[in-house]
Nucleic acid binder design. Sequence first.
DNA 1: CCCCGTAGATTGGTACTACCATTGATTGTG
DNA 2: CACAATCAATGGTAGTACCAATCTACGGGG
Lengths: 254, 254
Amino acid sequence: MKMTAMKTDNLFIPAQAGRAGEDVALQLEVAILSDKIVPGESLPSERDLQTQFQTGRGVIREAIRALKQKGLIEIRKGAKGGAYVKRIEVSNASESLALFLKQNHVDPAHIVEFRESIDQQLSILAIARAEETEKKQLVAQTEELQREASGGEPDLEKLGEIDRELNIRLAKMSRNPIFAWVMEALQLGFSSHDHTLYSDPNYCKKTVDNWHITANYIAANEPLLAQASISTHYQLLRHCLDDQGILCQSRNNN
Amino acid sequence: MKMTAMKTDNLFIPAQAGRAGEDVALQLEVAILSDKIVPGESLPSERDLQTQFQTGRGVIREAIRALKQKGLIEIRKGAKGGAYVKRIEVSNASESLALFLKQNHVDPAHIVEFRESIDQQLSILAIARAEETEKKQLVAQTEELQREASGGEPDLEKLGEIDRELNIRLAKMSRNPIFAWVMEALQLGFSSHDHTLYSDPNYCKKTVDNWHITANYIAANEPLLAQASISTHYQLLRHCLDDQGILCQSRNNN
DNA sequence: CCCCGTAGATTGGTACTACCATTGATTGTG
DNA sequence: CACAATCAATGGTAGTACCAATCTACGGGG
């Protein structure tokens, strides 16, 4: 316990347990979360940490890997490289939830239902809180979606991308990051289902036009009408999935 | 593409890129998520993987570490040890979310708002889908909550526990597991805030009684009234948090 | 024959070394 | 002064050796 507090920092104590790797990761995480190392700065090099922790380099690397996985740091190679502390993004948390949902084989009907509920609330909040310019941008993007879909050979990738952006834009307009988190998580895990809607010519145009209508209702500050058209969207999605036999609609899960 | 499908499996191709570790982790993750390795089974030993991937053991260990971080596997030492695939728990997603919310100083008001939205929808679904017996059980548990709270020295731990169970019970009555998971994820990250409601004598009784009222409305199949009383619940929570200066209520986040 | 304990084998955990690849800074050269 | 070669720092990979924990199997003692 020298506590000499050199320029860098010797606040790391040598880890010796059978789980040295986790010990190191924990100490580093605490250092980061307690703002001892601020986003933009970098941790000492692996070899420095190796000496500070009195341990092998492999242990350090495993700890670093864990922190990277958590989204706490970003790693750059070469001189001036190292583990740079970064601001955590929602996508990390979303990915976590998406993994869980994916492994549990969720009934698509449940996801659709949940998303509809979220979207309903989202439209209300967006109308109440978003700037006029944001609402106009939303409308503009739905028109871009229409243009993209009107061609004889619509680019499904592009349509899906725009649809995703629309959802995220709407989520941001709610001024509540939690909605954005959930939305992103659901899309990460089940973007495939949205594709079916656009790949089927019977539903593509209806869906696209309905997006435009919804956006216009939001821009016109008509929450009830917006909710109605969102319901329409999910009715379309349900029918479309039903046509393809994707929906189980089984109510006998516990 | 031998497809010989040996007893173990040679479906792993040697990784060579500068990011071999991530490559290995990705291949293993795919193998797990596509149910090639089922929960309960274990991955090959590190030394086996080392030969299958034609790489060093350090690379394997880092990949394993990443998967462990994601909650995909659990590691046991000794003979018959190894990386056992496990069912992902919501707590992983919660932890991830908690990290994000913590580092980004998310306003508790946002969490309250989101939970209120979920609860509203939950009550509607519960009324429509739950059995009569479940509704009666819900009411019964709110009465237990009242009994527990009526004593001169209410056990805060016990109250919190019952409150948590009530929420989970309600979520299950919706017949849609996603609501339950999202709810649980949020609660795990912020159970502290729920305690404040019960620890403050000014709000405790009101909250408890309101739970009872809500449950009765649900049992009586009165969705609108149930929603109203749920609103009351969150009004109480908001005021309570406000009294303690926890709420920021700042609307100027992007 | 049964029970218990010890030895062996398997596997993750740690340490150390050497070398490669990338990247930024330094230095040298035109 | 500009540009290119060189160098140094750092992460990435490979391989070895050994330790620690844990299960299995064998064998002795009852």
